[in-house]
Design a protein around this nucleic acid. Structure first.
Lengths: 134, 134
DNA sequence: TGTGCTGTATGCATTATATAATACAGTAAT
DNA sequence: ATTACTGTATTATATAATGCATACAGCACA
């Protein structure tokens, strides 16, 4: 039962637009997680699978996975594989306010640096959580 | 009356997210042209203005402008300045949609890995862009 | 034990990115 | 002609990214 990883592998693509490969990989995998195509606890494609499928160096994939782990999105287990991180318990209400602001500011900056209207991203987020019933 | 360039300058921002500076500049300017904030024939900020405003090297800005010219979005006139092309390439709406979706999905994954409601982040984003005037 | 899968790591070469410090060249206004 | 602004260009330096080859290390299982 490797449909989830295979589906992700099939959707991965690289563009020669100046964006580093490891950034493209990292961001596309984050999207897959946000999408729910990869669920918490589920195994990610192995680094070698990604490297072979996209004809990219193993260390480049490792770079992307390393970023994702540092960010808390995945967990890497030596000799076993990499897995989507479990959803952490909701933060306590006082910190949540601050954390929400922080995440929002980062999203705004992210959108701006990619030339996208932050408001458009916000509306899209609402649409995503709605179509998943959250 | 240089409000258009000034407005663009004010909105330019850089983020240390692995995306090369010249790509960030190129994309943001492309988006400014795409949504009409910069109109055909209008003068762009000079390369030096951008370099000084963002504290980046003149050659880095040139790299971004070079991409834009090769792409047909702007026209560079030596010693006179750079201008939005008369018929700027229509930014493919599908690309814009896709990028927006990607950014939204990343934000969702980001929020979830930190135990924050994605919807709360979305509402915060809207609040932020509102309190900055659209 | 050994085979085979995982992630981890190193060394080397090449290319890309970014900065700094200068300089050059074309245009326009005074 | 001088000045002041454009874009263009070179050299040097440093760091990052990528690829390639080659390993090492941990785990599971026949």
């Amino acid at each position: 039962m490797h449909t989830a990883q295979q589906a992700l592998l099939d959707r991965l693509s690289l563009d020669a637009n100046g964006v580093p490969i490891y950034v493209q990989l990292r961001d596309q995998m984050l999207s897959a997680i946000g999408d729910g195509r990869l669920k918490p606890g589920e195994q990610m494609p192995t680094m070698r699978q990604v490297a072979v499928a996209l004809k990219v160096d193993l260390n480049t994939v490792r770079h992307a996975y390393g970023d994702l782990e540092r960010q808390g999105a995945i967990v890497i287990r030596r000799a076993k594989g990499t897995y989507v991180a479990d959803v952490p318990p909701a933060t306590d209400p006082r910190d949540r306010e601050h954390l929400t602001e922080e995440l929002a500011l980062r999203a705004v900056a992210d959108a701006r640096t990619r030339g996208v209207e932050p408001a458009a991203v916000a509306r899209r987020i609402l649409k995503i959580v709605k179509r998943r019933g959250e």
